[in-house]
Nucleic acid binder design. Structure first.
Lengths: 123, 123
DNA sequence: CTCTTAATCAACCAATCAGTTGATCAACGA
DNA sequence: TCGTTGATCAACTGATTGGTTGATTAAGAG
């Protein structure tokens, strides 16, 4: 069993966080620089409480961190957390692609490849 | 009636699909090769109907495709779909990291950098 | 102290999702 | 044909999510 360096369901929360268009837009905004709740709320027609919840989701997923500056609580994007996600995806993407290339070679390089729909023949 | 052609909510579905540990395990399994519903169901203590639903989620998210082989309906992982996800994440990760490096340079190369709006340790 | 700003907490509602059971379909094999 | 296997469809339950309104904390500014 692979031990998770982070919590057991960190990936759950991280992917779930990115499954929402509002939170993805926040990530996009935060990639340009830190922002407060009010700044993040501006582009959206939802209440600030809802925005606060979205940020909490991102924070609990480990994608952002927060600090304190007087009343403001600037949100900061954690690039390393994003990298962990791409690392997970790429891990399996590369395995699948290498399998694909192997099959391609077996079939001959010149043949336009069909999707590998069956690889075993019934006995 | 599916104008399902890379709609704006494709990312929603894809990230949502990966937000579930069962579906992630299926992706991991499928990276090693195509599999049937029953094969995918084996490691889990859930019904095949539930597994079928998970596969439908992955399929609707564009992460897997299905074909027919007699009664079996092998599931195939779409590596290109995974790549689109890493592309989205990396887009913003790289922006954030480059911003980070710029700040690092401004502060001087020798200084160990702290987060630009530094997080204060609670006491 | 009072007022304003920034943000969170708490309770609630509508919608959605994971999982179940039971019935049905589709493709073989005898 | 019938029976079996692989997989889906349909309806239902329980838990969770996204959103709201209203009250509350925290930190200045006057």
């Amino acid at each position: 069993m692979e031990s998770d360096t982070q919590g057991p369901d960190t990936l759950d929360r991280a992917f779930m966080a990115l499954a929402d268009p509002v939170r993805r837009a926040m990530v996009a905004r935060l990639s340009r620089g830190d922002a407060t709740v009010n700044e993040l709320a501006e582009p959206f027609a939802i209440t600030k409480q809802a925005v606060s919840k979205h940020i909490q989701v991102l924070e609990h997923a480990g994608l952002v961190t927060r600090s304190r500056d007087a009343q403001r609580r600037p949100v900061h994007l954690d690039a390393a957390a994003l990298e962990r996600l791409t690392a997970w995806i790429d891990q399996y993407r590369l395995i699948a692609e290498s399998r694909f290339r192997q099959l391609d070679q077996l079939l001959g390089a010149g043949i336009p490849h069909e999707e590998q729909t069956r690889k075993e023949e019934p006995k």
